[in-house]
Amino acid sequence: MNDDTPQPTVHPALQPVRGAARIAITGLFLVGAAWVARAVWQVRLATTGQPSSGPPDQGNGQHRPLTGLEDGYHIVTSLGDAATLLCAVAFLVWLLRVSDNARALSGQPPRYAWPWVYLGWIVPVMNLWVPRGIVADVHRQSAPGERLPRAVNWWWGLWLAGMVSGVGLMYTDSTDDVIARAYTNVRLLLLADAAVVGAAVAAVLVVRALTAAQERPRLR
């Protein structure tokens, strides 16, 4: 027997990621649908026009009664916020799992410690690049030598566009303020909505790409 025969490399057991990926993808589709619904309602508001009584927020703490269309937009927004929260949880569960797998595959510590999987989204300034860096690091460790999927850059660029627009996933305006903006400048709202929907679609491709990289046979 030739002792110099190369032996197959047995990689460590990995956590299953397919189920988590499916849940994350479902959440991303729900978020995309929620922002499409918002865009439809914003167009309806702009087409109907602002009532003669003015915007919902009258200033000095005064609010007029909402119209049926405005009340419907509040409901659509609330449902979208709930879908976004569920999607965020599902995406983070998937991201933490593939991060653990990537570390097991490479045998090297990640560039960002595990708390950054969560903190990277909320710490000011750091949230401009840390989440993308975590995803890129997972791909590098899971598929060494392979090119980073283009969907990663599309996802992150569109995410940032939606985030900094002021009406995307992290907008600070109240729903009544957004309604007032729909009456006066709906185009900017629709551009922000398009960025969020595009980011959700690109994120689906990212989840599929990284999941596929970790599901390849690891016995060589």
Rank of each mutant, 00 (worst) to 15 (best):
N127G: 09
C87R: 13
P217R: 06
V152N: 09
T9M: 03
Y183C: 07
D57L: 05
A203N: 05
A212P: 09
D173A: 09
L66S: 01
S78W: 15
A194G: 13
L30Y: 12
V135T: 07
L95E: 09
P110V: 01
M163T: 10
L210P: 06
L66M: 04
V178G: 03
G59P: 04
G19I: 14
R208C: 10
H74G: 05
V43Y: 08
C87W: 15
V17L: 12
L188C: 05
L148Q: 08
Q108G: 03
V206D: 01
V130N: 00
Y183W: 14
I179C: 04
D71R: 03
R140T: 13
N2W: 07
L169E: 05
V152S: 09
S106I: 00
R147E: 15
P131T: 10
A20P: 02
A82W: 13
Q7H: 04
W41C: 09
W94Q: 11
V36C: 12
V36K: 14
A20G: 02
T48I: 06
T26G: 13
A194V: 13
T172W: 07
Q50T: 05
W114Y: 08
V31P: 13
N101D: 05
A143N: 03
R132S: 06
F91Y: 10
Q141E: 03
N127L: 05
L205Q: 12
D81V: 08
S52L: 11
A24H: 03
L92G: 05
C87G: 05
F29L: 13
S52I: 06
N101C: 12
V167N: 13
A213V: 09
A37F: 06
I179L: 01
V36M: 14
T9F: 06
N101L: 06
V123I: 15
D137G: 03
E146D: 07
N153Y: 15
L148W: 03
L190T: 01
A24S: 14
R150F: 08
R187S: 08
V197R: 04
D57C: 08
P144Q: 02
